[in-house]
């Protein structure tokens, strides 16, 4: 066991971890951040995405011990005070059905919009190509994102 300290959703957290502990398990099982999900457990599906120092990463492919001193944001952090405009748009467009992919999609899109506030449809598709959704066919997801980017343009 080794104690690590990092910032989770704005709060400094110290926790004991084993070297073979995976970040996703730490977040869900020890720290109660349940939004990242385990889908494929090998980096393909995007359900476990979190922001690590501002960049979207697969929390199923990172040892917990690696994030010592870093900053992690999950969906709980993004919607800490109120839902983001992006989340409101996803609700308005009824973008998700089962919702399992939703946290990962929101994390990935949040990163995209920070780097490129006005992506076109192709750029949105490229950014979300690693987030698998088996319910919606993606269209309502893309529509909701486009609605946010177009609103900002006005």
């Amino acid at each position: 066991m080794r104690e690590i300290t990092f910032i989770l959703n704005g709060e400094t957290r110290s926790v004991n971890v084993e070297p073979n502990e995976i970040l996703l398990d730490l977040l869900r099982d020890k720290l109660g951040a349940k939004s990242p999900k385990c889908g494929c457990d090998r980096g393909d599906c995007g359900a476990c995405a979190v922001l690590l120092n501002g960049r979207s990463v697969r929390s199923c492919l990172i040892y917990a011990i690696e994030v010592e001193g870093m900053e992690i944001i999950t969906l709980e952090g993004i919607s800490r005070n109120k839902l983001s405009e992006l989340q409101e748009s996803f609700i308005a467009f009824n973008s998700f059905q089962c919702g399992y992919c939703a946290p990962g999609v929101i994390i990935t899109t949040t990163e995209l919009l920070q780097q490129n506030p006005h992506p076109d449809l192709e750029e949105i598709k490229e950014a979300l190509s690693g987030n698998l959704c088996r319910c919606t066919g993606y269209k309502p997801i893309f529509d909701a994102i486009l609605a946010v980017t177009e609103k900002e343009e006005k």
Binding site: G46, A49, R58, I62, G130, N131
Partner: peptide
């Protein structure tokens, strides 16, 4: 190569 979340790491 893969997707954004993989390329970031």
């Amino acid at each position: 190569v893969a997707s954004v979340g993989i390329r970031n790491r």
